[in-house]
Write a protein that binds this DNA or RNA. Structure first.
Lengths: 337, 337
DNA sequence: TTGTATGCGTTATCAT
DNA sequence: ATGATAACGCATACAA
């Protein structure tokens, strides 16, 4: 790697002159500036970023700590983060907590030693359940800006970007009741231990309450593979009056459609199905599932924007931004082929 | 952030003594070592990694350049990379090329200035199609180890981890012919312009040739949403003799199942369906689709292992590792509920 | 307009 | 056993 020192030696001038020339300082003559730049491009000189970081005490790197990236929600958020970071000349270091407290803590501690200018975090399931968040507070205490999204911790004061979990489920439920005239709406859940799961369930029960209906909740207890199908199938078979299903994750809604068809139900005539979904979710079901579409990409964008603002001006006051979800009603009945 | 200098000042000893004490140098007395360490933990001292990086000329960071992360394959690879990197005390900087050449080049150039110790890359679609890979060669020339996976460039000499695209599709096709007695197998493709797409198609045509059957290929031309459904539906409707479908991506197989059911076909009696799939793919279809399961996580693990070996010993000779895929035959007929 | 000197935080070499 | 000094590559305050 070419260094300033090498350039200076070859040109018989001082290191600082070379530095200034490359940075377009006005105090350097046209002549030498050109000579320096020519040699620099010829030798493919690039300033050593590590040295710049040490000098300026800024890394232009954001630490991103996610529970997982195989969940499409977080993958899409990451996409938004990366794009916005790049547009603002930041790189991102990505760590995955795998939903564990110790990994989250380890990553945070490791990066808090000058490796990054700030953090974007969605806390791990374990950290949230055990309410252990000292590691995050500690990062903030050492003047590192932190932004939390989706899964946030109430008693930590920092910028936050959250989803309207309560509200969007409330509205989806109300849609089923009012627009689609449904009376027996089943909520299917396997994330009731997460704060977002609880919020979604609250949105559902509140909507039912407001309309004098009684809630039905099928908790899957973290079931996997065929168990998911079996539990839903069995429940539907034994409860024939169910006329709508509201899934609060991105998988069980599609499973519910498949199981309902297996039971000979017509969709959406006999049964309306709403679930959470991402870009391709609707393509995977037939008839099309209605989905609550979280603006994951936008969440990533706004999080990054907010964090970078905070990095550049630490005096800015903290805020919590709610990114509304979009309810996409299926129109499968109209598909004419 | 606490520094060595601050510790030294507080203890009235020199910086170098503090440094040695913390690094368990034998030439430091038991007494002072303990005093130093006590104060260090008390003040939560952590060595500044940037300074260490400048000193040692090693960052312990791997640059990871992916086309996207919303594709489950790359998400799972990333998971494997992150895990293995962490286990070997490396961090990862993730850049997304978004399938474009210029973004890939930009990321590579930006990180090649001392920011990382090596690269893991799956080249962007555009780079592969246009056969522009000078930026990668340039990184290698400046002594930065590069590992390519999945989408590789033949005329670049570096470590590679690839999938058995030809072989696994050949075997899946043969399975359909020999075990399931299928005669009219339709290949559904929308990635024919990628090297992996071409390999998969070759595996299919070769298997048919070897068994004296004629190929049917439905190219979707990067169709999206309803168009995907429509093209598959129309084709199936107009070609009633098709008795098996082989999808070479992870979406169209499920769509094919849904469309076949819509046409009143029984699966797997009338039609066998095989597609590419990931962890949850089978859960999303009913009856269950058979899948070619790429060991994405393992690809990430092996890539990282190989790169780190290469970083630690540059004289190691390059190798290309093939990670075999697994054919998971659906057993939906046996599900008894 | 150019050059010298200093420091970022750490480690390593060489005194004491 | 401890300390002074230099060096990694860069940027900048200050001198010339």
């Amino acid at each position: 790697m070419t260094t300033l020192k090498e350039l200076a030696a070859l040109l018989n001038i001082s290191v600082s002159t070379v530095s200034k020339a490359l940075n377009d300082s006005h105090e350097i003559s046209e002549n030498t500036r050109i000579r320096v730049k020519e040699l620099a491009t010829k030798l493919n000189y690039k300033p050593n970023r590590i040295a710049q970081q040490l000098k300026t005490n800024k890394t232009k790197i954001i630490g991103v700590i996610l529970p997982t990236v195989t969940n499409p929600f977080f993958a899409e958020v990451l996409h938004g983060i990366e794009k916005t970071a790049t547009n603002n000349d930041y790189d991102i270091i990505v760590c995955l907590s795998n939903e564990t407290l110790h990994k989250e803590k380890r990553s945070l501690d490791l990066l808090a030693n000058g490796s990054v200018d700030g953090f974007i975090i969605a806390v791990a399931r374990e950290s949230q359940v055990k309410e252990q968040t000292d590691h995050i507070k500690s990062a903030i205490k050492s003047k590192l800006p932190v932004l939390m999204f989706d899964r946030v911790v109430d008693d930590i004061e920092c910028n936050k970007v959250i989803v309207d979990d309560f509200q969007c489920v409330y509205e989806a439920t109300e849609h089923l009741i009012v627009k689609e005239k449904r009376k027996n709406i089943l909520l299917v859940s396997n994330i009731e231990e997460l704060s977002v799961g609880q919020l979604r369930i609250s949105g559902y029960t509140k909507a039912l309450e407001d309309h004098k209906l009684k809630p039905n909740i099928l908790k899957l207890d973290n079931a996997v593979d065929l168990d998911v199908e079996k539990k839903i199938y069995t429940y539907l078979k034994g409860n024939n009056s169910i006329d709508a299903i509201l899934s609060i994750d991105h998988v069980t809604g599609i499973v519910a459609i498949n199981m309902a068809k297996k039971l000979g139900k017509e969709i959406p005539k006999d049964l309306s199905v709403v679930g959470f979904g991402y870009e391709h979710t609707q393509l995977l079901s037939s008839p099309k599932i209605s989905i609550i579409h979280q603006k994951a990409h936008k969440i990533g964008e706004m999080s990054t924007k907010l964090l970078i603002d905070n990095i550049k001006d630490e005096t800015l006051k903290m805020q919590t931004i709610v990114v509304p979800s979009e309810l996409k009603i299926s129109e499968s009945s109209q598909t004419s082929f």
